[in-house]
């Protein structure tokens, strides 16, 4: 198509503007900021199944950011520290069971915490209909071979597959604290806790954006 020479700069400017506009329209500044607030990977712990314990997994491993594997739900289970405020260690080998609002339950052993307590489920494995009920299963105190319910979330998950979106430390008016296996139900003989330094330090997302702080 031939345009008069005098119009060409204008067309170029409009074209560039449109391209920038389309590019900007594809981003979500709120999510971008939430992702940026998670910070860099910790030294010695590059992207891997054990990285970023405590942080909201689906924020990156969801359809917006697109990190693989794509998760519908993910989080970290810790062992309750011996002393309040003590270090949180990931709880390996615990099973997470989900019950969705259509009555579907995740199959036994589908979602199990890894060596640093991280767990996740992909859409191919289980596509939940919210709201969800969540339970943690693990070895019983009396018989380590017997898997029993350790705890159940007292409320439901309404829409956010990242446990770390709500469960952050410390326990506060905005957070019920990290997801933990209560110390009273923790069978130390049946679970090999990670040695110090084997897992990244747990980190959490800010529970309230600065702009909303009272």
């Amino acid at each position: 198509m031939n345009h008069p020479r005098s119009l060409r700069p204008l067309i170029a400017i409009v074209g560039v503007g449109l391209a920038l506009g389309v590019a900007a329209a594809c981003t979500d500044p709120l999510r971008d900021r939430q992702i940026a607030e998670l910070g860099e990977e910790q030294d010695g712990f590059p992207e891997s199944p054990i990285h970023r314990p405590g942080q909201p997994c689906v924020l990156c491993h969801g359809d917006y950011f697109g990190a693989e594997p794509q998760m519908v739900l993910g989080g970290t289970v810790f062992v309750e520290p011996e002393e309040p405020g003590g270090p949180l260690l990931g709880a390996p080998g615990y099973e997470i069971r989900l019950l969705d609002s259509q009555g579907r339950i995740t199959s036994e052993g589908l979602i199990t915490t890894n060596e640093c307590g991280n767990f996740w489920v992909t859409e191919e494995q289980f596509k939940p209909a919210y709201p969800l009920r969540v339970e943690i299963y693990g070895p019983s105190l009396s018989d380590p071979d017997r898997i029993v319910q350790i705890s159940a979330m007292s409320t439901r998950i309404g829409r956010d597959g990242s446990c770390g979106s709500c469960h952050a430390e410390p326990l506060s008016p905005l957070s019920p604290g990290a997801v933990v296996v209560p110390r009273a139900l923790f069978n130390a003989d049946a679970v090999d806790l990670p040695a110090p330094g084997d897992c990244p330090e747990p980190r959490y997302r800010p529970t309230v954006p600065e702009s909303l702080a009272p």
Binding site: P131, T155, I157, G158, R159, S165, C166, V208, P209, L212
Partner: peptide, 10 residues
């Protein structure tokens, strides 16, 4: 009122 729904300041 769960924290991820209407139990949110935002």
């Amino acid at each position: 009122g769960t924290l991820d729904c209407h139990g949110s300041l935002a």
